[in-house]
Each structure stands twice: as structure tokens, then as C-alpha cells.
Computed example of a mutant assay.
Amino acid sequence: MIARLAVAALCGSIVGLERERLLWAAGLRTHMLVCTGSCLIMLVSAFGFADALGAHNVVLDPSRIAAQVVSGIGFLGAGTILLKGEVVKGLTTAASLWAVAAVGLAVGAGLYVPAVAATTIVVAILAGVKPFEERWRDRMRGHGLRVTVRRGALSVDTLHGLLGGYASRIRQFVLAPDEDPDREVATVLFSRLPPAALQTIERTLREAPDVISVEPLDG
């Protein structure tokens, strides 16, 4: 039993180190505690009622206590989730806590190979998939342009004509007067637009005769 608790702490520490590297509140110690605690709960569920099982007509289900870990760990996960503006942070850390709880249950049940394999997969997902995820998000996140044009030269129909197939990616179009009475400033927001496509749109707009300047909103 002590060996199982030690293995659970080790597995939790491996996942926790990856979260600690990114300075999340739920880091090394939190993941170790969750994994070790889950392991102990599984041990209690499996071996803690040996005396009661010896009584006449007593039947116990060793999975009932362990099953509560799956739902009960949610309060810790909820504590790691933050809402910053319109962006939700901490979902991955909450999921990693839930995963190490499952690893702890597996170690407590004596399933060492699945527990170690799951730990390896979880760390690979957290550390190995993140660069691809960030690259994909950067590729597909929204972009915006600030376009300065001669007064009366740009409208939604005109913009659609200039952009062609990219016009379907326009999420918002706002036209406002400039300090110069002969100019207007258009703010155009695009959704799910790769950087290469944005560069093509910028080049197309700059070549238009009535466009004075084109500037990225996030640049």
C-alpha cells in the first residue's frame, strides 16, 4: 500500500511539474496531493472494509467510494478556472487535476502499467500538443484592419468587391469620419483568418486607388 501511494505521488508530480513550469496555481504540490489522495481513497475502498465483509449477509461494492472522486474532484478544478474578459483560463489545468485523480485511483487499484501509461500520455498532451495548439489558434484567430480612404469611396459592397472570396470572413465593418474632412476610416474585423490571407487582403486594399493607408489593428 505504501508503494502504491509513493507511485501515485510520483505520477502526480510528473504532471504537476509541467503545470508548475507555466506558473499555474495548481502546480506540483496540488497534483501530487490529488493523485496521492485518490490513491488512498481507492485503497480504503478496496481494503478498508475487510472486517465488515466477514460478517454474515454483508455485501459491499468497493467501487462506490472511488466513484465519488470522479465527481468530487470538480471543486478543485473549478478553483483553477478563471474568466479574464471574454477568455476562459485554466480549463486545461482543471482537466489535468481530473486526470491525475484517475491516475491515483488506478495506482490504488494496483493497475501500475495503465497508470504510468496514462501519466505519460497526459504529460505528452500538456507539453507536446501545446505548440501545435498555439500555432493553430494564431492561424485561426480574428484579425482586424484600419483602412483610411477618401470620403465616400468605401462601402460594404465596395469592400466585398475588392476582397472577393475573403469577403465571407468579414465579421464587422465600421466606417467613421477622419480628422481630415476629405477622409474616412474603416475598421474591418475578420474571423478565422490565417495570417497569410490577411497579408493578401492588406496588399489588395493598398492597391485600390481610393485607399490611402492600411494598418493592422493588432500590429
Rank of each mutant, 00 (worst) to 15 (best):
L5G: 08
V7A: 15
A8I: 02
A8M: 07
A9H: 03
G16S: 06
L17Y: 13
L17S: 10
L22Y: 14
A26Y: 03
G27Y: 05
V34I: 09
T36A: 15
G37A: 03
S38W: 06
M42H: 01
L43E: 01
L43W: 01
V44E: 03
D51C: 06
L53H: 11
G54A: 12
G54N: 13
A55R: 14
A55Y: 15
N57G: 12
V59F: 13
P62K: 09
S63I: 01
R64T: 04
I65P: 09
A66L: 01
A67M: 06
V69S: 05
G72D: 04
I73L: 08
T80V: 06
I81P: 11
L83I: 12
G85Q: 08
G85P: 08
E86T: 14
V87G: 04
V88A: 04
K89F: 15
T93V: 04
A95N: 08
S96K: 01
W98L: 01
A99I: 00
A102N: 03
V103Q: 05
V103P: 02
Y112M: 07
Y112R: 09
A117C: 10
A117G: 12
V123M: 01
V123Y: 02
G128P: 00
V129Q: 03
K130T: 09
P131V: 05
R135P: 05
W136T: 15
R137T: 11
M140T: 14
M140K: 12
M140W: 15
M140E: 11
R141H: 13
R141V: 08
G144A: 14
L145R: 11
L145D: 06
T148L: 14
R150V: 11
R150M: 09
A153L: 00
D157P: 08
D157N: 10
D157A: 13
G161H: 13
L162K: 07
L162H: 11
G164F: 06
R171E: 14
F173M: 06
P177T: 08
D178C: 05
P181D: 04
V185G: 03
A186I: 07
A186G: 06
V188K: 03
F190Y: 07
S191G: 14
P194I: 02
P195Q: 05
L198R: 10
Q199Y: 11
I201H: 00
T204N: 08
L205Q: 08
R206I: 03
R206C: 11
E207A: 14
E207S: 11
A208R: 00
D210S: 14
I212Y: 08
E215Q: 10
L217R: 12
L217P: 07
